[in-house]
Simulated assay, not measured.
Amino acid sequence: MTALILIDVQRGFDDPRAGKRNNPAAESNIKTLLDAWTSAGQPLVLVRHDSLFKGSPLEQGTPGARFKPELDGAEPDLMFTKHVNSAFHGAVDLHQWLTAKGINRIVLAGIQTNMCVETTARVGGNLGYEVHVALDATFTFDQAGPDGTVLTADELSRATATNLHGGGFATVTSTQEVLTLLG
């Protein structure tokens, strides 16, 4: 079995305060994965980031905390919230749930590439899961470093792919490649 874990696919990331994003096809690819997993009857996990910070676009209980329309009608096997980057540190013990179901391979997609997706992939890799990241089913935003230098969202995505691949945390791949895991 292979679990699809969709991370933080939420409306709050459409807030203009987030800045310039990359990969306008991410939501379409997320929907493709969701539909394929549902058709195959494989485990689906939805994770939502509920920010504890007032005024955050992802503040719990606000419209921004809601899932994007691409997830409408989804019937997950597990759905939970988190307040930190890793889906393994949420309101539910994801590691325990996956272990109880005998799942040792996970596919990750969602938002943000270099934040919650990368952190979840790293923790999953550390826990011994075979982790696949569908990079084209993620997106992120331009971000300034401590010296004020701005890295573009595309540069940050490439850095995530390099970190995960080079560190042995995950196989970084595409939506189409991931679909072969269902075969």
Rank of each mutant, 00 (worst) to 15 (best):
T119F: 06
S86R: 02
C116P: 00
D8N: 09
A144R: 10
T175W: 02
R158P: 00
C116Q: 02
R48N: 05
L71T: 03
L34P: 06
N85T: 08
H165N: 14
S28C: 09
P57W: 02
F141K: 05
T38I: 04
L78W: 02
N85H: 14
T2D: 04
G166E: 07
D35F: 02
G167N: 06
G12I: 03
N23F: 01
A25N: 12
P69H: 08
T138L: 00
A170H: 06
E75P: 00
L94C: 05
L34C: 07
G124E: 02
H83K: 13
S86I: 00
V123P: 03
R105K: 14
E118T: 09
G61M: 01
Y129R: 02
S174H: 03
L151H: 15
N104Y: 05
Q10D: 01
D14F: 11
L52M: 13
L46N: 09
R17A: 15
R48M: 10
D77R: 12
N163T: 15
K20I: 12
L44T: 12
G64C: 04
T2H: 11
L179S: 02
L33R: 03
Q10W: 01
Q96R: 15
T38D: 07
R17F: 00
E59K: 13
A159C: 11
L98Y: 09
I7F: 03
L156I: 12
T173V: 04
V178K: 02
G90I: 06
K31I: 00
E155Q: 15
A36F: 11
R21H: 15
Q60K: 15
Q60F: 02
T32N: 08
I30Q: 09
A161C: 05
L127F: 14
G90M: 03
E155R: 09
I103Q: 03
R66K: 14
Q112Y: 05
H89A: 14
V117R: 00
E27F: 13
E177Q: 14
M115V: 01
Q60M: 12
C116M: 00
L33H: 05
V9N: 10
V150F: 12
